[in-house]
Design a protein around this nucleic acid. Structure first.
Lengths: 210, 210
DNA sequence: TAGATTGTTAATCGATTAACAATC
DNA sequence: TAGATTGTTAATCGATTAACAATC
């Protein structure tokens, strides 16, 4: 009842608001207005106001929102408090980039283990995350209550890894391989289509120039 | 003046159609229907049909589209023919992952040069791309007619690199750093918000489970 | 012909923007 | 009080889905 879930677009913007708010000096009583946030992030004022209205405990007319409580409200709505765990498969350049990506640290999602098939890597740590042999995945996932899997392997191995993850009880997959994964109905897949992203930018540029 | 530009969503889907079509066996005369593409990629039939209608030279009722000419039509609409060049700044794990990412190769956008401030890397090659000192950026960009820049440096350096790129005449920036970049009006920025992407997946999962 | 498929037109849905009343 | 700002309601815009006619 009620509690309509937050849309993708809103979540995306909330993370940028949060970043901006944290960059502001705050003595614990400082305030900020939606107008100011919008200007700083090149967004529409009303959009920001609507986003904040959706998740915040309220601002004061003529004053704005108290920075520290707004930060708290955003973090709560993004689930920073009750955090969940994820495992990463594939510790190549991309995998390492993800493991070292600072911005995940602050997030409600933590990468707790990594898997790779390269014997030389197994048993070592990367950015504080232990790299394990893929054979141990099923056993470890069961114990750790992990529900999110990240696929950072070459596209030829992606479906195989995906099946393995599903077999381990993973219910949400973040896929960086340029492959459409086949999964059961109860598993969510989010594809990170990097090639498309670059193409989109290139097309927008072309359009602008013409 | 007709020629309305293709939307972001359509571009994204077109890249997946292309991938699927290329995976099909084709003797040069084989056909495929929108229905089949939709089923293979878990998409709505009508959506696929509308996308294809927008960019293809037409299909035949009861038969479908000729695979090889559909591939050509998609590639043309995505600008695979008149390709453009991009430079990458930051050859850490993420930068290397992008340089080695196979799917860019087939794209109309080519990464022609990389820059880094690490002396040890300068002058070496990574995946066939030469790594240069950032000081030489302005000079090289002018000669190479590059308009796209990719920022894969730590967030603390992102704005500085951004300013540098703008100074070199770059008009479109693909930003992986979790920072809102300030740019002149004639420069396009596309932010790749990885933390948000993972959060979205995590939220969708939470919603599904509850 | 019959029927699968294309392609178009209308309906729905969701997100953004605009207008405006409420408030401190 | 006057005015900046919140928050809500209505209008617009765009994307997806549904319905249906056209076609081979």
């Amino acid at each position: 009842m009620g509690e309509r879930s937050i849309s993708i677009h809103v979540i995306e913007r909330l993370t940028t608001y949060l970043r901006y708010l944290k960059s502001l000096p705050d003595d614990g009583t400082a305030s900020v207005s939606a107008t100011k946030i919008a200007a700083a992030l090149d967004l529409n004022q009303v959009l920001v106001r609507k986003d904040l209205a959706e998740i915040s405990s309220g601002g004061k007319p003529r004053v704005g929102y108290q920075i520290c409580s707004l930060i708290e409200d955003i973090e709560t709505s993004l689930g920073y408090n009750d955090s969940s765990s994820a495992i990463l498969v594939g510790v190549g350049n991309l995998g390492r980039a993800l493991l070292s990506h600072k911005s995940f640290r602050e997030t409600g999602v933590r990468i707790v283990l990594a898997f790779d098939c390269d014997e030389a890597e197994i048993g070592t740590d990367c950015c504080g995350v232990r790299i394990m042999a893929t054979e141990k995945m099923a056993d470890l996932c069961g114990r750790l209550k992990v529900h999110i899997g990240i696929i950072a392997v070459p596209d030829t191995a992606a479906q195989e890894v995906c099946d393995m993850l599903v077999g381990c009880g993973i219910k949400a997959i973040w896929n960086f391989a340029p492959t459409h994964l086949k999964v059961p109905d109860d598993v969510i897949v989010r594809n990170e289509n990097l090639a498309a992203s670059l193409l989109i930018l290139s097309q927008q540029l072309r359009e602008r120039l013409s």
